[in-house]
Simulated scan of single mutants.
Amino acid sequence: MTIQNQPYALQPIGNTASPFDSLDAFDYDAARREGWTISDCGVYGDGSRRVELQKTDDPIQGAPLFTEDRAAWAHVVQQARRGSSLHYLALQLIDRREKLAVEAHCGTW
């Protein structure tokens, strides 16, 4: 089933053929090695998906690499600007509200 007439970022996960619609396709291990992840946080009150880019609180080894989520945002945006497909995909998977917050802090990518 494909949802019609909705902005891409608001389409429910799994309802299109786009490679950017599934959190299952994301390389969480690669992100965790860098100290960040994307998290499915459920849904907002309006029913839209809530997917956030966050620092990793429980790294595989050692102390967390980022002290706050905004530092992880800056890293991911910087790497996406340099052409990293992992980082670009993460920014495509986060929800519209999270994108607005990331763009307000880091600028566009």
Score class of each variant (00 low, 15 high):
Ala90Thr: 01
Gly62Pro: 12
Gln61Leu: 15
Ser85His: 07
Leu86Ile: 10
Pro12Ala: 13
Glu68Phe: 04
Asp27Gln: 03
Lys99Met: 03
Arg32Ala: 06
Pro12Ser: 12
Arg49His: 09
Arg32Met: 08
Asp46Lys: 13
Glu34Lys: 14
Gln61Gly: 15
Gly83Asp: 07
Phe26Pro: 00
Ala101Thr: 06
Gln11Thr: 07
Met1Trp: 04
Gly35Trp: 02
Pro7Lys: 04
Ile60Leu: 14
Trp109Arg: 08
Gly45Met: 07
His87Met: 09
Gly83Asn: 06
Ile38Trp: 04
Pro7Arg: 07
Arg50Asp: 15
Leu65Glu: 11
Tyr88Gly: 02
Asp57Ile: 12
His105Met: 01
Asn15Ile: 05
Ile60Phe: 11
Leu23Val: 06
Ile60Met: 13
Leu91Asn: 00
Leu91Met: 00
Met1Pro: 08
Thr2Val: 15
Thr37Met: 15
Tyr88Met: 05
Ala30Asp: 01
Ser18Thr: 10
Asp46Ser: 05
Arg32Thr: 03
Asn5Ile: 02
Arg81Phe: 00
Pro19Glu: 15
Gly35Ser: 11
Gly107Phe: 07
Thr16Gln: 14
Gly14Tyr: 10
Lys99Leu: 10
Ser39His: 13
Glu34Ser: 13
Arg81Leu: 04
Ile60Pro: 04
Ser84Trp: 03
Ala31Gly: 10
Asp29Arg: 08
Gln4Leu: 11
Ser84Gly: 02
Val77Ile: 03
Ser22Trp: 04
Asp69Trp: 03
Lys99Asn: 02
Arg82Ile: 08
Val51His: 11
Pro64Lys: 02
Ala104Val: 00
Asp69Ala: 11
Phe20Gly: 00
Glu98Thr: 06
Gln11Tyr: 02
Asp58Gly: 02
Ser85Pro: 01
Arg50Phe: 14
Leu53Phe: 10
Thr37Leu: 13
Arg33Leu: 11
Pro12Phe: 15
Glu52Phe: 03
Thr16Glu: 06
Ser22Ile: 10
Leu10Phe: 13
Gln54Thr: 11
Pro7Glu: 05
Val77Trp: 00
Ala104Lys: 05
Glu52Ile: 03
Ile3His: 14
Gln6Val: 07
Thr56Gln: 14
Gln6Trp: 03
Val51Pro: 13
Glu103Asp: 04
Gly83Gln: 12
Asp58Val: 09
Leu86Tyr: 03
Thr37Arg: 14
Lys99Ser: 08
Trp73Cys: 12
Val102Pro: 00
Glu98Gly: 05
Phe26Lys: 05
Ile94Ala: 06
Pro64Cys: 01
Gly45Ile: 15
Asp57Met: 13
Asp24Val: 09
Arg49Ile: 07
Ile13Ala: 13
Asp46His: 12
Tyr28Trp: 07
Leu91Ile: 00
Thr108Arg: 02
Leu91Pro: 04
Leu10Pro: 05
Leu91Gln: 00
Ala72Asp: 00
Leu89Ile: 01
Pro64Arg: 01
Leu89Phe: 01
Ala80Trp: 02
Gly62Thr: 13
Ile94Gly: 05
Asn5Thr: 10
Glu34Pro: 04
Phe66Ala: 04
Asp69Leu: 13
Glu68Gly: 06
Leu65Val: 14
Phe20Thr: 06
Gly35Leu: 00
Arg32Val: 03
Gly62Lys: 07
Gly107Thr: 05
Gly42Leu: 08
Ser18Ala: 14
Asp27Ser: 14
Val76Ile: 04
Arg33Cys: 02
Arg49Pro: 09
Ala17Pro: 01
Asn15Leu: 15
Leu86Gly: 03
Asp40Ala: 08
Ala74His: 03
Thr2Lys: 08
Arg97Ala: 05
Gln78Trp: 01
Asp58His: 10
Leu93Ala: 00
Val102His: 01
Asn5Val: 07
Thr56Phe: 05
